[in-house]
Nucleic acid binder design. Structure first.
Lengths: 340, 340
DNA sequence: CAACGACGTGGGAGCGCTCCCATCCGGGAC
DNA sequence: GTCCCGGATGGGAGCGCTCCCACGTCGTTG
């Protein structure tokens, strides 16, 4: 209730009130150990009395660090995965950053022009590091950012071997688990609707599918593989193609829930019952899976946890104290419902 | 390709290169008209040659404006509306801000403690203004922020009469449109599953439902009104209750798609066919609506447009040049599908 | 008992920009 | 020719902080 007369208080004013020097207050604020207990309390009281809050701009200017990190999401993908994927990711990142008292700058990139503008930001020293979601197979951005000297962590990777630090989910394991489950239910003609194969995530899930077949002693059959594009319509088309080519299939592993929904519609059109005639498994465990009829068995990714891990890794890179490895592959989990 | 030797270039260096003073370069950068054409070009060339990008922190410190705005989303709601609602909103906000070259700081608030921390940020002068999504009926935050002297714009409102600038969708119109459609299809016993009535949005949709009945000359019946909580489970419970109380109902207006999905499940359990026995309408036009069986008729809100409008309003408030009114109610639109 | 670290502290020197005032220049009015 | 005015320009004075060096003031060592 005091000392509020002229704008926000500054370090200087706190120092005067506590009867110490500017440097000392700064030390207390930043938790330096080189301050006596007595002084510390005196300063803390002055801070409380004046309601002092450090000016972020001044801090950033003097200390050349912003306490903010950027999360970049390509707009096209945000639309594609309309699912809560990105929200979950954001939630995880946000939670971890909040604990570290860092700001989250969200950047939706929707055009090449905006991507360039974003590189400008980086150059303007607005953030201490960058989180990249959903990187394309040939995206040069991660490397560009590193050239600028900024720490980066990606969600997913561009290829099996990825030089830039990343957090991915075990997409191969996801495919294997799905196939194993279907095999366990007695299915022997298991088809798959893949994502676009220029994305590593799609290739990995397909690889898992193949590995699953091999482990079950089933021989691969390219007629049972059809490429979708992670959209519902794409799933529908791919499913029609599969039914056409291999009418005897008795199960389908769709590389995403949305495609599974499309496949389900195509199955209905074709008069196939789920799960009686054809069992169905998706990936993502999105709300859509729960609401489908019948509810969809799906492989869950720990999306929020990926977000948290990314943020944690980035903070360590920024602190130049990477304690964890620079690559993380988090486990997936099969959620069994009535679709198989 | 030049002058890259010592960190990023500063204003001073650009000035030296262009053979002018610091002030002049600043004027050019900021588009001041008081610069001769000739000087302007010379400076522009120096900027390009050195790859100069203004340091944001220095700008903020000297100019006391940050070119960043905060978007605050209560975590609980983000979970509730798991739908793409917030992503769409973010998309709109982001698009508008990108055009104005402003940064978007996303803040997910998940506890009272974090809310207080957020107020600290504001005091730390990190942002020029605040966008508030999904405000509770009795949320004091909007007023608190205004007390701090920061411009605010909310998404939705706390009550019919709302002092703080806001952008809302026409929820009353949504209810009326839904009912009118059902009446047009020959339904006469139209029930509704509402949202939690301590939220204005829920009350408004209920109000629209009632207005719709009145306009059709149907008499209201409280046995046809049941409160949900915007969750699937809540929708299911409310629907069961309605079937119990009014077995003769022939249509339901659910105040959200998610609740409609719950209601649909309850109808299935009860052996009622949709739309033959009971017609169903939701609100949001979310992906869930499209994927339901049968696909759900739903009232679409212009979410992304709301985001854009909010951002535009806020920018005007910041510039102290509000050209638009401080309240916006955007129209909704009925998307007809097979559920009625 | 002098010399010497170690610790706690004060405050100068910037960080890179914006704001603003003083200065300069040229052309028109008298 | 002199005076005046307005537009263009240079650069000082901060903005509020961090960094770091210098300065006591002790307790300890030889």
């Amino acid at each position: 209730m005091s000392g509020r007369q002229s704008g926000r208080p500054t370090l200087e004013q706190v120092a005067a009130r506590a009867g110490v020097g500017r440097g000392t207050v700064s030390r207390v604020i930043n938790g330096s150990p080189r301050v006596s207990e007595q002084t510390r309390t005196a300063v803390a009281r002055a801070v409380a009395e004046l309601g002092y809050v450090p000016n972020q701009a001044a801090r950033a200017l003097a200390g050349s660090r912003t306490d903010a990190i950027a999360l970049v999401i390509p707009e096209a993908e945000a639309r594609l995965f309309a699912e809560p994927y990105f929200l979950d990711l954001i939630r995880g990142v946000s939670a971890e950053l909040a604990e570290a008292d860092k700001q989250l700058l969200l950047t939706l990139v929707r055009s090449e022009q905006e991507r360039q503008r974003f590189e400008q930001y980086l150059a303007a020293q607005r953030v201490d590091g960058v989180l990249l979601a959903s990187v394309h197979g040939d995206d040069p951005l991660p490397d560009r950012i590193r050239e600028l000297g900024l720490p980066v962590v990606m969600n997913g990777r561009r290829a099996e071997a990825e030089p830039v630090p990343y957090v991915d989910s075990d997409n191969i394991g996801a495919g294997r688990a799905a196939v194993a489950h279907l095999v366990g239910r007695g299915r022997g003609r298991i088809a798959t609707v893949t994502g676009p194969l220029d994305m590593y995530v799609a290739r990995a899930r397909l690889g898992g599918y193949r590995a699953g077949l091999a482990e079950a002693g089933l021989s691969p059959d390219e007629a049972l593989v059809s490429a979708g594009d992670f959209t519902e319509e794409g799933g529908r088309r791919a499913m029609r193609l599969l039914l056409d080519r291999s009418p005897d299939l008795d199960a389908v592993f769709a590389a995403s829930d949305v495609m599974a929904a499309g496949a389900r519609a195509a199955l209905r059109e074709a008069g196939r019952r789920v799960p009686d005639d054809v069992a169905l498994v998706g990936v993502d465990d999105s709300p859509v899976a729960r609401l489908m009829d019948p509810p969809l068995t799906s492989v869950r990714q720990p999306i929020e946890e990926m977000g948290r891990t990314m943020a944690r890794m980035l903070l360590q890179e920024i602190a130049e104290a990477p304690q964890e490895p620079r690559r993380h592959v988090l486990p997936t989990e099969l959620i069994v419902r009535e679709s198989c």
